[in-house]
Design a protein around this nucleic acid. Structure first.
Lengths: 206, 206
DNA sequence: GTTTGTGAAACGATTCACAGCT
DNA sequence: AGCTGTGAATCGTTTCACAAAC
C-alpha cells in the first residue's frame, strides 16, 4: 500500500470516533462537510483522506455511517484486539494501569514489568508486577503486541533495544527521549513536558 | 514575530532537553550535528530551527552550551513559572496530580476542580478538590495560566468555553474531542487512543 | 579545516475547483 | 440540485549546497 501520511492516519482515528458518535445519535448518513465540522478540518481534507483507501461515499448523498465506521476500523487495524505490556512500574506506569480506558477501544494491558525488587510481586488492578530482568523472554511469553515504555529517560533506549530483539514492532513511549529503532518498528512518543513548553511558547509570543 | 511552525517549537523543546544533558556531562560547546544525532533529525534542520530566532553559534566551533540553553529557555518562555489548574478529578486528573513531574520543569499544579460533590473537599497530594460550579471565578481566583482539561468528552467543550471566558489562554486537553476556541487561545490535545490506533495502523500495514 | 547561517531547490501536504455520479 | 472523488494549484516544510566566519 502507498505510504500514507502520519497526519492522515491521525485524522482517520478522529473520524472514527465522530462516526461512532453520529451512529449513536442514529444518523444514517454523514457528509464530508459534517465530519469536517466536527473535526476542525475541511470537507476536501476528509474526502482526500478517505480517497487514499477507496471510494466509500455516494455522490449527492454522503457516506453511510455504519459502512464507513466498519471500513475505518478495518483500515486502522482495529478488527482485532491488542496485547499491551507496560514496562516501568513508576508513576506513569501506575497511572496507565489504573486508568484502564484502553480496553473499550481494543487494547488490553496483559503485563507490567519492572526491575525494582521492591515492586516485583505487587498486584495492580489484578496484574502482578513481574521482573523485567529477562525482558525479551517476558515479552515473548506474554505475546505482547505493543510495549508501553514508562521507564526513566536513562533506561529507555536499553529497554527499546530489548523490545526490538523480542520481535515486538510497536512502542508507545512516555520517556522524554527520541528512541533509535529499526525501520520495521514504530514508535509514538508522548511527551507532556514538550506539550507544556509548546503552550508556554504560545503564551509568550503574543 | 514571524509565525513559527508547530514542529519547530516542538524540536526546540527537545533541543533544550538535550542541551541540559550535554551541560550536565560538562560539554562546553555542541555542534548542530551532535544535537541532530541526539534528536533524530538533521544538522540543517537544527540550524534552520535556531536561525528563526537569531545567530547563536560560532562558525567552525558550534554553539556554547550554557548560552544556547539560556536562549532556548527564553525563547520557549520558560524564564518564569506557570500555574496549572486541573479540571476534572477522575482517573486522568488523579494521575496527573500524583505524577507531579511538571514542577521541576516550571509548571506548578495550584488547583483541582470538579463538579462531583463526592469528590469536592478531598485532598490529593496536598491540594483540596474545589467545586467547579463557578469555574470562571475559580480560575481567576487561582490566577491560572494553563488549564489541564481532564473531564469526560461530553463536558469538555462546555469547560473550554468557561476557560475562554475566564481569560486563560492555554489548555492542555486530555478529552478525545477537538475543542473550538478563539484564535487567541492555544490548545494542545493529548489523545492516547489516537496514538494507539496509529500504532495499530502501522502494525497492520506491513 | 570546521561548522554556521541561509537562499534556492525539492518535497510533501493542503486547498481549490470542477467533472461525474446519484 | 447535492455531494463525492480527484487532478492541478498552492502553500509550507525540509533538505541541499555553499559562501562567510572562525
Amino acid at each position: 500500500m502507498r505510504k500514507i501520511a502520519e497526519s492522515t492516519v491521525r485524522r482517520l482515528s478522529l473520524y472514527l470516533r465522530f462516526l461512532e458518535d453520529f451512529g449513536e445519535q442514529g444518523a444514517e448518513t454523514v457528509s464530508s462537510e459534517a465530519l469536517a465540522a466536527r473535526g476542525g478540518t475541511t470537507s476536501a481534507q476528509v474526502r482526500k483522506d478517505l480517497s487514499f483507501f477507496g471510494s466509500f461515499g455516494k455522490r449527492g448523498l454522503g457516506y453511510r455511517v455504519p459502512e464507513l465506521t466498519t471500513r475505518l476500523r478495518e483500515i486502522l487495524g482495529l478488527a482485532r484486539r491488542y496485547r499491551l505490556v507496560v514496562v516501568g512500574a513508576g508513576k506513569i506506569g501506575s497511572a496507565l494501569v489504573q486508568f484502564g480506558g484502553f480496553r473499550k477501544r481494543g487494547f488490553d494491558i496483559v503485563g507490567i514489568l519492572d526491575r525494582d525488587p521492591a515492586k516485583i510481586g505487587a498486584r495492580w488492578n489484578g496484574l502482578t508486577i513481574c521482573d523485567a530482568a529477562d525482558l525479551t523472554g517476558e515479552l515473548r511469553r506474554l505475546e505482547a503486541d505493543v510495549v508501553v515504555l514508562a521507564t526513566p529517560a536513562e533506561a529507555a533506549q536499553g529497554v527499546a533495544d530489548q523490545v526490538v530483539a523480542s520481535g515486538v514492532r510497536a512502542i508507545l513511549n512516555f520517556a522524554p527521549v527520541s528512541l533509535a529503532v529499526p525501520e520495521a518498528v514504530t514508535v509514538k512518543t508522548i511527551n507532556l513536558a514538550m506539550e507544556l513548553e509548546a503552550l508556554s511558547y504560545a503564551l509568550t509570543h503574543q
